Deep mutational scan, measured.
Amino acid sequence: GKELVLALYDYQEKSPREVTMKKGDILTLLNSTNKDWWKVEVNDRQGFVPAAYVKKL
């Protein structure tokens, strides 16, 4: 099944490779191999968020 993460904080994208999320959002985790930036999918968009801003559910 898909792995989900919870947004712990708001995050505003700073580049086209990133995505914006709001605290409390549930996101689909696509890739967590990089310890600093995790790739997630939110609202049919894929991009990176800081790993410290999310936690695995």
Rank of each mutant, 00 (worst) to 15 (best):
K55R: 13
W37V: 03
A7G: 03
K55V: 15
K55E: 14
Y9N: 08
L57R: 03
R17I: 12
W38M: 04
L6C: 09
A7H: 01
S32M: 09
D44L: 10
G47E: 02
T28M: 12
P50W: 03
V49D: 01
Q12V: 14
L29G: 01
E41W: 07
K14E: 08
G24Q: 02
K22R: 13
N34A: 09
D10S: 08
K23W: 04
V54E: 02
T28H: 10
M21P: 00
M21Y: 01
R45A: 06
N43S: 10
Y9G: 06
T20E: 04
R17T: 11
V5I: 08
P50G: 02
L57H: 06
V49I: 10
L29S: 02
Y11R: 03
L6F: 08
K22V: 10
R45D: 04
S32R: 08
Q46K: 11
L30T: 05
D25Q: 15
W37T: 02
Q46G: 06
D44Q: 12
R17F: 14
D44C: 13
D36E: 12
D10W: 04
V19S: 02
L4D: 04
Y11E: 01
S32W: 09
T28Y: 11
K55A: 13
K39V: 14
T28Q: 12
K35M: 11
N34E: 12
Y11Q: 00
D36G: 09
K14I: 07
L57G: 04
F48L: 09
M21Q: 02
V42R: 15
K55P: 02
T28F: 12
E13M: 12
V42I: 15
R17A: 13
V40Q: 00
W38Q: 01
L4I: 09
V40I: 08
L27H: 03
W38S: 03
Q46C: 11
E3P: 11
Y53W: 08
N31K: 07
D25W: 11
Q46L: 07
E13Y: 05
D10Y: 05
E13L: 07
V40Y: 01
G24M: 03
T28K: 11
V19Y: 03
K39Q: 13
S15T: 12
E13S: 15
L57S: 04
E18Q: 10
A52L: 12
A7M: 02
V49L: 03
E13T: 09
A51P: 06
V54G: 01
E18C: 07
K2H: 12
L27W: 03
V19N: 04
Y9E: 11
S15I: 05
Y9V: 11
V40A: 02
T33K: 11
L30Y: 04
K2N: 11
A7E: 01
T20H: 05
K55Y: 10
E41N: 05
R45E: 05
L6V: 15
D10T: 06
N43C: 13
Y53F: 13
S32N: 09
G47C: 03
L29H: 01
K56W: 08
T28L: 14
A7R: 01
V49A: 03
L30F: 04
P50H: 02
R17Q: 13
L6I: 15
L27R: 01
I26L: 09
Y11A: 01
D10K: 03
L4V: 10
T20A: 07
W37G: 00
D44Y: 09
K14A: 13
V5G: 14
Q12A: 13
T20C: 06
A52H: 13
Y53C: 14
K23M: 08
T20F: 04
R45S: 07
L8N: 03
P50V: 02
K2G: 10
Q12C: 12
W38L: 05
K2L: 13
S15L: 09
K55Q: 14
W37A: 02
Y11L: 01
E18T: 08
E18A: 06
E41V: 10
S15Q: 08
L8W: 04
Y9I: 10
L4M: 12
V54F: 05
R17H: 14
Y11D: 00
D25V: 05
T28C: 10
N34W: 07
V49K: 00
Q46R: 11
